[in-house]
Amino acid sequence: MIRISLAFLLQDGSLMNELYIITTGALVAGTCSILGCFLILRKMAMVADAISHAILPGIVLTYLVFDSKDSFLMLIGAGVFGFFTAFLIEWIHSRLRLQEDASIGISFTFLFSIGVILISYYASNIDLDMDCVLYGEITYVPLNTVTLQNGLNLGPKALWTSGAMFLLVVSFVSLFYKELRICTFDPSYAVSIGIATVIWHYALMGLLSFTTVICFESVGSVLVVTFFIVPPATAYLITNKLNHMIILSVLSGIVASVGGYFLANLLNASIAAGMCTTCGIEFLLAFLLKRQKR
């Protein structure tokens, strides 16, 4: 219930805090949407969902081993588990010859259950709450700020980390746009002109896990998955050009984070869930618009 009072506090607080929350949401939305475009075109939407669940043990283990909530260590731990999940799914599918849907389902439930067990076992010395895994705590974003030694307040930490992630993903995608596009649409051609598709595949998986864990604390796993899948799907309904699709999905993600904030305030509900719902509404609108045209 502490969350409510905080939400009220923040609402009354200042325009600045609102702005912080919405900007963080928008940065997360942008980062996820850009990667999501490639994921849904490569038919890997559910792999993203699986990874977002399966990095839980990575986060918990890092926390237990290093006894700190240092984002950098978490990033490494979760990144390792993200890779591992992508690898496990692929291994079960191709080596153990299990159909792909089942191999995704089994891998992520297996790893997630380990995560939950670890959390419950070390509950007394872990300050990770299962609710926060799902919802995230975007409401708290303005509270956790970065302060320099001379006392200068630089604003919320989550804003900086998600901003850095956004820049990383944007520069990665714009630098290697050509390679990513070819790998996505015509893998065999990519191989024939000497592009190592496997490396790009795992590069995407790595970025995916990093993004997931960066956004994990601020917005929760549900919203991450939503931002990965729904804005790109909305954009895909409207256009069939990759560059347009990326720009449209980023825009749609940003609109969703603004709209979601106000929807959540209106209903006095979780901001992350509000953003999810707004994404859904946008998709519905795009779908109806598309049908009308036909």
């Binding site: 969902d49 799902l134 919802y135 549900v222 919203l223 998955v225 939503t226 899948i229 729904v230 979780s270 992350a272 869930a273 953003m275 999810c276 719902t277 994404c279 859904g280 998709f283």
Partner: peptide
């Protein structure tokens, strides 16, 4: 994700 988001 959308249904679950609405649920949450």
């Amino acid at each position: 994700s959308v249904f679950f988001g609405i649920g949450l």
